Amino acid sequence: MTTYSIDDAAWGSPWRRRRVGEKMLLSLALVLTALLTPPWPGCVAVALFSVFLILGPARIRPSLLATVLVAPLTFLLLGTLPVVIQFGGDGWGVGPLRLTQEGLTTAAGLFVHGIAGTLAIMVLATTTPMIDVLTWLRGVHLPDPLLEVASLTYRLLFLLLATTIAVRGAQQARLGDEATFRRRWATVAATTGSIILRTWDRAARLQRGLEGRGYEDSLVTLAPIRRRSWSFVAMTAVGVSGVWLLCLAAA
């Protein structure tokens, strides 16, 4: 459902009408800034600026942003554990597991860098559908085989999600809310098999449809004409420059 929500939000965002290259420039500039600046104040400023853009001009729901960030936050927290905890040495802890001030500081810096970079990527992900990204990549002459693999993976992923949601809905309607955990778990194997078979059938129909259209080496789509927005480019330059000036002032 999260992938569906991100894609729906990207299609409905007012920033969808902006050029992909301009949004790509903004997102990559924020990512590089989060990578090269210190956690304070650079990464914090990048994170706040990204949240402002997502919730403000891009008009993305706060609940959607919070839902999307659950998985990256969990990954970042798990990734910082080996940095925080060490075996032996000085520090606080019980037995061989120790916490050190240096480890906590390093882990906090890595976590802030990761959050800032993730939010910078979300600026692009929540405002640009994947089909627009693929069309833009074709415009910058990325090899067609790579684009076709990415496009096929994208479409098959949504086939799998749609089938999973349909089967899950049918299972809930059949079992109801009173089913025990054991009974629900017993249906997982059958549900998984049904999802795989249905997805395979829909993917085969997708292939036959492409063959019927005369598909051979690439599936070219028409890209809408979007005018360059110099005000958007200026906003990108001012925002990123402001973060760097803030870092220089705090140095």
Rank of each mutant, 00 (worst) to 15 (best):
T135A: 15
E178L: 07
L81Q: 07
A189F: 05
W92H: 01
A179L: 03
L160V: 13
G109P: 04
L81V: 13
W185M: 12
F111L: 08
Q171V: 14
V84I: 15
I131P: 01
H113T: 12
I60C: 06
R182D: 13
T127P: 01
G95H: 08
T192F: 06
L146W: 10
A179C: 09
P62T: 04
T192A: 14
L77W: 07
L119D: 03
R182V: 15
A179R: 06
F158T: 01
G79M: 00
G56C: 03
G176P: 06
A186P: 01
R168L: 08
L161H: 10
L55T: 07
L78K: 03
G95Y: 08
V51P: 02
R168N: 13
I85K: 10
S50I: 08
L110R: 10
I131V: 14
A173Q: 13
L55Y: 05
P72M: 06
A170R: 15
L119K: 05
V112P: 03
G88Y: 01
Q171P: 10
G117F: 02
P145L: 02
D177A: 10
A45H: 04
D144N: 08
L76E: 02
T187E: 11
P143C: 06
A120G: 07
L48M: 07
F158N: 02
P82N: 07
P96T: 07
T105R: 04
I131S: 13
L48R: 06
V68Q: 06
L146A: 15
V188F: 10
L99K: 01
G79N: 13
T74N: 00
L69A: 13
H141K: 11
S151G: 11
G193C: 01
G139T: 08
G79L: 00
A107G: 07
L99A: 01
V83N: 04
S151Q: 14
L69W: 13
T74C: 02
V167Y: 03
L119C: 02
A150S: 11
T135V: 04
E148Y: 05
E148C: 09
G103V: 10
D132Q: 09
G117V: 09
V133F: 15
S63E: 14
V167C: 00
T153L: 14
H113L: 15
L104W: 08
P62C: 03
F49N: 09
E178Q: 12
I54M: 06
R138C: 03
G93L: 05
P57L: 12
L53A: 11
A107C: 07
L157I: 07
L134C: 03
G114H: 09
A125R: 09
A166K: 08
V123K: 05
D177Q: 12
L78P: 11
Q172E: 13
Y154L: 14
T127R: 02
P82E: 05
W92N: 00
W92K: 01
P72N: 09
T126Q: 15
F52K: 10
L146V: 11
A108K: 12
L77K: 01
T106G: 00
P129W: 14
R155E: 13
I121V: 14
L77C: 08
V84D: 10
P145S: 10
A116Q: 10
V46I: 05
